[in-house]
Nucleic acid binder design. Sequence first.
DNA 1: TTTTAATAGTTAGATATCTAACTATTTGTG
DNA 2: CACAAATAGTTAGATATCTAACTATTAAAA
Lengths: 141, 141
Amino acid sequence: MKYNNAIYLISRIKEAANRFIVQELEAAGLNGVVPSHGDILVVLYTCEKCTMKELAQKIHRTKATLTVLVDKLIALNLIEKEKSAQDSRITYIKLTPLGQSYKDIFEKISQKLNDTFFKNFSQEEIKTFVSLLEKTRNNIE
Amino acid sequence: MKYNNAIYLISRIKEAANRFIVQELEAAGLNGVVPSHGDILVVLYTCEKCTMKELAQKIHRTKATLTVLVDKLIALNLIEKEKSAQDSRITYIKLTPLGQSYKDIFEKISQKLNDTFFKNFSQEEIKTFVSLLEKTRNNIE
DNA sequence: TTTTAATAGTTAGATATCTAACTATTTGTG
DNA sequence: CACAAATAGTTAGATATCTAACTATTAAAA
């Protein structure tokens, strides 16, 4: 079946994207930082301060995984925790100044990722590609 | 950037495909079997007997990972090892009769996966999709 | 022939990721 | 008000996955 190949290709592409991101982050001085860590930072670049639960939802990971991911980013001094004054079950996560300083680097990596993966794609092709990906995503969620 | 979304969607789709496969395999009575295990079996359904090195290459995993994956499939009595008579460094992996008996099930799961993920896709759309995925894959390998 | 280099697969350690259970807190119900 | 249910985040355990180092074997070079 021809479309059996699509899922295989999607898998290959995703794994290559992960490797690319890890390598670029290492080149930028961030070792041991993987895409999920990056996802957290990217969320924080837009919302400044999020609960653990919100972050877990936004990056599609479980609360348990988030604990591990967050602990590592804290160890790297990129983020910090802040308890909620209104509800002591709630913990907010926010960027440190160091975390903030990587914003441009993340944008550049994202740009480079896209320039590399979609080299020689026309605007029309990209539009079609995203549309088909969205159609697939809509079939499964 | 519009195409920033593509890698995100690819990631979502791949993870959804993994979950789908795991659930279908569980429904078929195979617990704890993940896509990489399935990849090994699928390779063996076509080549009957492969070296560990070949399997690792074909499923894009390291030799170390393959050892773990293979050990589990052996524990499930789906595959077995056979040392090479010509080169005692080499170990062949082959299907057991039980492993063979799951061939139809794997084909059905693959079909169901594709029917679900590409529901409402025309043949033309699928063709385009695969072509664009191949174009991306060619940019990164 | 001996030594060096390469190869196949395993071992050891680290880590992201999950499920399930847990603790502390808050909300809802009677 | 007391109790039950729900919630936020952590802990514990298991596992796929990787890198690096290792052992045993084979191939290549001296």
